[in-house]
């Protein structure tokens, strides 16, 4: 209870601010409409109108909540294209689009994590690789992903690779970096004394890596994975924006902005945020289980 109360307080304050902002931002349109029709509007008219416009500048929280319900549960269970009626997910539902995004995110995340760990192993064991590769890894992250994503999509499409893979590559591009940095630090976490101890046993480099460096790096790995998985999700959504992708939360955001469907945009945004939070929580749960099994209290 103690931990829930502050969270609820913050949530309540956010919703309150959101309502205030929705009224403030949408009021002008209500007044313009009234002026055009030549009628006077009272404050209560403004209040009810600003919170129920079809295309508000800022949709009210309850409008987004209704849209979220309609484009998930309602669409799948009661809809003509829903999973209940057809056996497959409706292409109008956020569950479908969320799944498309999630699958590319997970593939990219797995790929990025593997790449990050492999590069970290190389960097820790080879001075030359440390000197030559690390600057490039850092430079890669200074290039805006928005500039690279369309090129990756277009180049890969021209050689016939479309759909999941290009998005996963963009996700991997963003997620390998935190894993790389975290794992380099993790593999270097053992102090001189621990390395000297293994030296007195005449342990091989592989033995040192396997028995000391790798287990030492596990807490660092999970810290990086939490950042990496969120980055992978951002990468996937960015990858869905260009070139008219037809599915995914990114595509939903884009089509929402084409047609001025602000409620749809906000619903997709919230779905993406919930997805990110869920993924980070899952990584956190796995972290607690793994560290617990390893005898380390996190």
């Amino acid at each position: 209870m103690k931990s829930v109360l502050p969270i609820l307080t913050v949530l309540f304050a956010l919703v309150l601010i959101w309502y205030g902002a929705a009224i403030g931002l949408n009021a002008q349109w209500t007044r313009d409409q009234a002026a055009r029709a030549g009628v006077e509007v009272s404050f209560s008219d403004i209040l009810s109108d600003t919170l129920s416009q079809a295309r508000p500048k800022l949709p009210a929280p309850h409008q987004v909540a209704v849209e979220l319900y309609q484009s998930t549960w309602d669409e799948e269970v009661n809809g003509r294209r829903g999973i209940v009626a057809t056996g497959t997910l409706s292409n109008r539902s956020l569950i479908y689009h969320g799944w498309v995004t999630l699958s590319a995110t997970m593939l990219g995340f797995a790929f990025g994590t593997g790449l990050g760990i492999l590069l970290a192993v190389g960097i820790v064991h080879s001075k030359a690789m440390d000197m030559s590769f690390m600057p490039w890894a850092i430079a890669s992250q200074t290039v805006p992903i928005l500039a690279i994503a369309p090129m990756v999509i277009v180049v890969l499409a021209s050689i016939g690779i479309k759909g999941l893979i290009p998005k996963a590559i963009i996700a991997a591009y963003l997620s390998f970096f935190p894993v790389l940095v975290g794992m380099v630090k993790g593999f270097r976490a053992p102090d001189t004394m621990q390395l000297d101890l293994l030296k007195t046993y005449n342990a091989s480099r592989f033995g040192t890596f396997w028995r000391l460096r790798l287990p030492s790096s596990v807490p660092y790995l999970f810290a990086s994975l939490k950042v990496g998985i969120a980055a992978a999700l951002v990468g996937t959504i960015v990858g869905e924006l260009p070139a008219g992708a037809s599915a995914g939360l990114g595509a939903r955001l884009l089509s929402g902005s084409y047609y001025g469907q602000t409620i749809q945009i906000w619903a997709a945004l919230l779905a993406a945020a919930a997805l990110a939070a869920g993924l980070v929580v899952i990584v956190g749960v796995i972290e607690r289980i793994v560290l617990g099994r390893m005898g380390m209290r996190s």
């Binding site: 000297d196 007195t200 390893m294």
Partner: peptide, 21 residues
């Protein structure tokens, strides 16, 4: 002598691996 594992070395800190019993 190190390669033939002639000695055991005890450091100032125990340096036990926290992930091992």
């Amino acid at each position: 002598a190190r390669r033939s594992r002639a000695y055991g070395y005890v450091f100032q800190a125990a340096g036990l691996y926290p992930w091992r019993t």
